[in-house]
Design a protein around this nucleic acid. Structure first.
Length: 417
DNA sequence: TCTGGGGTCCTAGGACCC
DNA sequence: TCTGGGGTCCTAGGACCC
């Protein structure tokens, strides 16, 4: 059996925890650049605010309802997430952190375990120890655990255990197909054409038919909804296939120079993450995007994938590769809105193959990177950077409604006390 | 005027090999 | 005039997730 746990309205719950006056109010949290809504309180849902609604389109509605609006405060959410995961780890040996606010746990084949009691205890203890409201779904596969979680929320319960075929059948029967894990926009439309409205309808399709129209992933989902596991719990080290840093600009960029600066910053972020997990990257993908929503602009989505000499994780090397790459794909005449750097081909730092006769001074760069990491961790991120990375960062993201750094900044800790 | 960032997995098709 | 078959590896792009 598997349990799926998530924090209810995660970012809103985190903000409320340190600001109880927000209880009962319409609260929303915005994405980076304050672009769109990514978390909503129950009250916000009630006035019709949808996930991913653009902020400017719901501004009036929020104002009329005296909404509390926040920019994303990831330092805070990541900290609360860690507290949740530490608590969950006490209930299982196999915890899979699936996202900032979600985890899967293997409950094993414990026949004498009272799943109802166990699940209720998890939810109560997490609330007592962290203050975070969570929902727990339990089922024989990860897809059914996830479905159980969502069904619990619909029934306004803290948990739901699907430990018999009868319970699964009953829950699947009216469960909307678009709410099933793995069914997005495209598959929803396709399935609607086949007359599928619920998870039950989907289960009734022939497995071969599903395989044909929804690739092997759809087939696996089909199996899982019948209680046959295809997904397994993986730990973080096995899962990391790529590391990416990307961001939209706060205004259109047409010149090469700010793009180089942004790419240099992303390369530095990726390099730091690689060093933190003691790995190196063999390949780097650098891309540029215009604004897909603006139909009046010519669109350009260039990307380039380059081999990093040997393998690397130093800021200097990755920045050099990334800046060269952006020069190769940049074309004047477009309004660029976003750029990013992605590392793939990730290998443990100890396994690098250097050329026998190479004169490359990797140890020097390694030391330089370590020194920069030390200064940046002591005096704040970005204190020391390469010259390619801008000092001005005119394109930096908008965060007009940022809350305090409650858990990480001593000044805020004193304020809140 | 204003629409996120960071991921995973799969498939088709090109390059290359013998 | 006639020009293979079978395989691997890689990448771009599309689907999905939170």
């Amino acid at each position: 059996m598997f349990a799926h746990v998530d924090i209810n309205n995660c970012y809103v719950s985190c903000e409320r925890l340190f600001n109880p006056a927000l209880e009962g109010r319409v609260v929303v949290v915005l994405s980076n650049n304050d672009g769109c809504v990514i978390a909503r309180s129950i009250e916000a849902k009630a006035i019709g605010i949808k996930m991913a609604d653009a902020e400017f389109m719901v501004r009036q509605n929020l104002k009329e309802n005296n909404a509390a609006i926040f920019s994303s405060n990831y330092a805070l959410y990541a900290d609360m997430s860690a507290r949740l995961m530490n608590n969950l780890a006490r209930y299982t040996y196999t915890l899979m952190v699936y996202s900032i606010d979600e985890a899967f746990m293997a409950l094993g084949n414990i026949s004498d375990l009272d799943l109802e009691k166990h699940t209720a205890a998890i939810s109560e203890n997490v609330m007592r120890h962290t203050g975070l409201p969570i929902t727990v779904g339990v089922g024989p596969t990860m897809a059914l655990a996830k479905l159980a979680n969502k069904a619990a929320k619909k029934q306004k319960r803290n948990f739901l255990v699907l430990d018999t075929d009868e319970k699964v059948d009953a829950t699947v029967r009216d469960f909307p197909i678009e709410d099933v894990w793995g069914v997005g926009h495209q598959y929803y439309h396709k399935l609607t054409e086949f007359g599928v409205k619920t998870a039950h309808d989907f289960r009734e399709l022939k497995a071969d038919f599903v395989r044909q129209h929804m690739t092997v992933q759809g087939w696996r989902l089909h199996q899982e909804l019948w209680g046959k596991p295809c997904n397994i719990i993986k730990d973080v080290a096995e899962r990391s296939k790529g590391i990416e840093s990307s961001q939209s600009f706060n205004s259109y960029q047409t010149e090469l120079e700010p793009l180089e600066e942004a790419v240099a910053m992303h390369a530095a972020t990726v390099a730091l993450k690689l060093r933190q997990q003691q790995s190196m990257a063999l390949t780097l993908t650098i891309y540029l995007r215009t604004n897909k929503h603006n139909v009046k602009h010519d669109q350009h989505y260039p990307s380039i994938t380059v081999k990093v000499p040997f393998a690397a994780n130093t800021t200097y090397q990755l920045t050099r590769v990334a800046v060269q790459a952006i020069r190769a794909i940049y074309q004047p005449g477009y309004n660029y809105l976003k750029t990013g750097v992605r590392a793939t081909g990730i290998i443990p730092a100890g396994e690098v193959q250097y050329h026998m006769f190479s004169v490359y001074e990797h140890s020097k760069e390694q030391k330089l990177s370590e020194l920069m990491d030390g200064l940046n961790s002591r005096y704040g991120r970005g204190t020391v950077r390469l010259g390619a990375d801008s000092f001005e960062r005119k394109w930096i993201m908008k965060q007009e409604f940022l809350s305090h750094q409650y858990t990480t900044d001593w000044k805020d800790i004193i304020v809140t006390q």
